[in-house]
Amino acid sequence: MTSSSIPLPLTKQPVAATVSVAAGRAKKRLTSPWASLFAVVLAILWTLPTFGLALSSLRPERAIKTSGWWTFFSNPQVTLDNYRAALSSDGGGLSSYFVNSFVITIPAVIIPVCLASLAAYAFAWIDFKGRNLLFVAVFALQIIPIQVTLIPLLSLYVKAGLAGSFWTIWLSHSTFALPLAIFLLHNFMKEIPRELIEAARMDGAGHVQIFFRVLMPLMTPALAAFGIFQFLWVWNDLLVALTFAGGTPEVAPLTVGIANLSGTRGTAWHLLSAGAFISIVIPLTVFLALQRFFVRGLLAGGLKG
């Protein structure tokens, strides 16, 4: 690479002036107690349903079916049986599904994020004929229901000898994620001041250098944000995995294991609620872990002035 001598344009004055972003923490803008109250009410409303599920997952089967979870407070009955049953090998044994979920999810997040950032860069910062048209076409592909792709794609995988392997799931998830990923990342990339890019070009940087040296550092929060969403969608997906790889414990993700917990005809809510909580742990951890990446804005706004 010949670009090592390119001065990073981050220190250029005009840029810094327009995008200098709060480094210091300002005071809260809405300080009225009503606003705080409202926020608390909203938070409670949003959490209450899940809280109900959490409590239910700790109640005995018969109690779940005959009384509401709030009766727990007047008549507390706690049991870990539901979790024990959901985790035990007899009830399906979720551990191998857990491994599969990880193996499925990690590449299915990395691949589309990388491909989409390349494509989004091309749509946002490279001039070529038909760019906008192509971008709109790609973004409109979001509307294609995954279900219409199942049979054609599975036929292709069968011909390629891939059916039943993880490869099909990785490829499919990556494909399905691209339109939205490109749309989101493109819109965030567009937010980066043109002056930054122009300055780098003036200094003789090629697109590859600009992409890595200018865009990527600024995009980290946006990539983390999309990464989280993609992680959730893949983690919680049932259909794609089931269709392309099948429901055997060899390849099937946690969602398959949990869906089957309810039994052939069953509505085993007690097992399902425990299962739902087992599967929520990982995505929530990922959210909390990655949240710090974009706590300062979708673009690494802290461009030092």
Binding site: P49, T50, W235, L238, S262, L272, A276, I280, P283, F287
Partner: peptide, 23 residues
């Protein structure tokens, strides 16, 4: 506070359907 609102996104569909059944 943000994690609380985010929580529903992290719940699988099976979980969400039971949650709303209890509502």
């Amino acid at each position: 506070a943000k994690a609380l609102i985010f929580l529903p996104m992290a719940i699988s569909f099976v979980g969400a359907s039971i949650i709303w059944k209890f509502i």
